[in-house]
Amino acid sequence: MVIHLTDNASMQIKEMMKEESADAVLRFGVRGGGCSGLSYSLGFDNEINKALDIVEEINGIPVAIFNQDIPVIEGTTIDFKQNMMGGGFSIDNPNAVFSCGCGSSFRTKENVGTPGDC
């Protein structure tokens, strides 16, 4: 398994998937940008490219990941935390050597990315 979803994250994602089409998958990956150089990408997708993506079922949720993102996110845990101000996903990436205060921008030892706005 490339990534891990906590029980709380899985419950939240399954609830959100009820609003999506039947063939939707959760897509997780990275893109350039953010104040540290890389930003996480988390959302739903209806298109899978078998040459570029892997799809794993995690806790009953189909998760698509671009092959090129695997070295950057392997071992990442996605959680969902609820508090008085609402709730949100948190991402714990063991490959990140630096994360900024916004929590969605990071860099790894091998991949600094291109910093942009947070």
Rank of each mutant, 00 (worst) to 15 (best):
47 E>A: 12
39 S>R: 11
79 D>R: 10
82 Q>L: 12
102 C>D: 15
52 L>N: 07
80 F>C: 11
63 V>A: 06
95 N>G: 03
40 Y>L: 06
28 F>Q: 06
111 N>K: 14
31 R>H: 06
8 N>Y: 04
66 F>D: 14
100 C>N: 12
32 G>S: 15
65 I>Q: 05
46 N>H: 07
82 Q>S: 08
56 E>N: 00
27 R>H: 06
102 C>R: 09
23 D>L: 10
68 Q>T: 08
25 V>M: 12
99 S>G: 05
64 A>H: 07
69 D>K: 07
35 C>H: 10
58 I>T: 00
92 D>N: 14
37 G>W: 13
97 V>S: 05
68 Q>V: 06
3 I>G: 07
66 F>S: 13
78 I>K: 08
48 I>D: 03
37 G>S: 07
61 I>K: 07
65 I>R: 07
101 G>C: 05
64 A>I: 04
87 G>C: 07
76 T>S: 13
13 I>V: 05
92 D>C: 05
63 V>I: 12
77 T>Q: 13
35 C>P: 05
62 P>H: 09
79 D>F: 06
54 I>C: 09
19 E>W: 11
67 N>P: 00
45 D>P: 07
43 G>I: 01
10 S>L: 02
96 A>L: 02
72 V>E: 13
81 K>S: 09
64 A>M: 13
59 N>S: 11
99 S>R: 14
113 G>W: 01
94 P>G: 01
49 N>C: 11
61 I>V: 11
38 L>E: 04
71 P>L: 03
6 T>L: 01
100 C>L: 08
44 F>R: 06
87 G>R: 08
114 T>Y: 05
103 G>V: 01
2 V>G: 03
79 D>Q: 07
104 S>E: 05
95 N>I: 00
18 K>S: 07
100 C>V: 04
60 G>K: 00
89 F>G: 05
14 K>I: 02
40 Y>M: 10
24 A>H: 07
105 S>N: 10
33 G>E: 06
28 F>R: 05
44 F>D: 02
51 A>H: 09
52 L>R: 11
9 A>D: 03
93 N>M: 13
60 G>F: 09
4 H>T: 14
108 T>I: 00
114 T>R: 02
68 Q>G: 06
72 V>D: 14
106 F>N: 03
118 C>W: 01
90 S>W: 08
28 F>Y: 14
57 E>K: 13
7 D>K: 11
88 G>P: 07
43 G>E: 00
56 E>K: 10
111 N>W: 08
41 S>W: 08
95 N>E: 06
13 I>E: 00
36 S>V: 08
43 G>C: 09
100 C>H: 15
89 F>D: 02
90 S>Q: 13
12 Q>F: 10
113 G>M: 00
70 I>Q: 02
40 Y>I: 04
49 N>D: 15
91 I>C: 09
15 E>G: 10
47 E>C: 04
17 M>C: 05
80 F>S: 12
66 F>A: 13
97 V>A: 03
1 M>Y: 08
68 Q>Y: 11
90 S>A: 13
38 L>K: 08
5 L>Y: 07
73 I>M: 09
1 M>T: 01
57 E>S: 10
117 D>K: 12
65 I>W: 08
59 N>Q: 05
